[in-house]
Amino acid sequence: MTDIITADVTVRPATPQDRPAVERLWLMFRHDLSEFGGALPAADGTFRSERVGCAFSAPGWAAYLLASGDHPAGFAFVRGLEGPVRVLNSFFVVRGARRRGVGLRAVREVLTRHPGPWEIAHQQDNPAAAGFWQRVAEDLAGEAWTREPRPVPDRPDLAPDLWISFTVTG
Results as ranks from 00 to 15, higher is better:
Thr10Pro: 05
Arg108Gln: 15
Ala141Cys: 10
Phe47Ser: 10
Glu50Tyr: 09
Ala62Phe: 00
Leu40Phe: 10
Ala106Gly: 07
Pro156Asp: 03
Val78Thr: 03
Phe47Lys: 06
Ile4Met: 08
Trp118Ile: 00
Phe36Trp: 13
Ala63Ser: 09
Pro72Asp: 08
Phe56Trp: 05
Asp154Arg: 13
Pro59Thr: 05
Ala43Cys: 00
Ala42Met: 14
Phe47Asn: 05
Ala121Glu: 09
Phe29Asn: 13
His71Trp: 10
Ala128Trp: 08
Ile164Asp: 12
Trp118Asn: 01
Glu35Cys: 07
Ala21Thr: 15
Thr15Ser: 15
Ala121Val: 07
Val107Cys: 14
Ala121His: 10
Ala7Cys: 09
Val78Phe: 00
Asn89Leu: 06
Arg86Thr: 08
Met1Ala: 10
Ser90Gln: 12
Ser57Arg: 14
Gly38Leu: 00
Trp118Asp: 01
Ala62Ile: 00
Ala159Thr: 10
Phe166Leu: 15
Ala144Asp: 15
Ala128Asp: 12
Gly80Thr: 00
Arg108Tyr: 12
Pro20Ile: 00
Trp133Met: 04
Asp125Gly: 12
His71Gly: 09
Phe29Ala: 15
Ala55Asp: 01
Pro149Asn: 07
Pro156Lys: 02
Thr112Ile: 06
Asn89Pro: 05
Gly96Cys: 15
Glu138His: 02
Gly142Arg: 01
Ala67Trp: 03
Leu40Val: 12
Pro16Gln: 05
Pro84Ser: 14
Leu104Thr: 13
Ala106Trp: 05
Arg108His: 13
Asn126Cys: 01
Gly45Arg: 02
Leu65Phe: 09
Ile4Asn: 12
Asn126Asp: 04
Glu82Leu: 13
Phe77Tyr: 11
Asp125His: 08
Val136Tyr: 02
Leu104Pro: 06
Pro127Asn: 06
Asp154Ala: 15
Asp18Val: 01
Pro153Trp: 03
Glu23Ala: 13
Gln123Ser: 11
Pro41Tyr: 08
Val136Ile: 05
Thr112Tyr: 04
Gly37Phe: 09
Leu66Ser: 10
Asp18Pro: 01
Val52Asp: 06
Ala128Lys: 07
Trp61Leu: 00
His114Asp: 05
Ala76Thr: 09
Leu140Lys: 02
Phe166Trp: 11
Arg12Lys: 09
Gly38Ile: 02
Pro160Trp: 03
Asp157Ala: 11
Glu50Ser: 14
Arg105Met: 03
Arg24Ser: 14
Phe36Asp: 05
Val85Ile: 06
His114Arg: 05
Pro160Ile: 02
Ala62Gln: 08
Phe47Arg: 12
Ala67Asp: 04
Arg150Trp: 04
Leu33Ala: 11
Glu148Leu: 14
Asp157Lys: 07
Pro20Asn: 01
Gln134His: 11
Gly83Phe: 00
Trp26His: 11
Gly45Ser: 02
Gly170Glu: 15
Trp133Pro: 04
Ala129Ile: 01
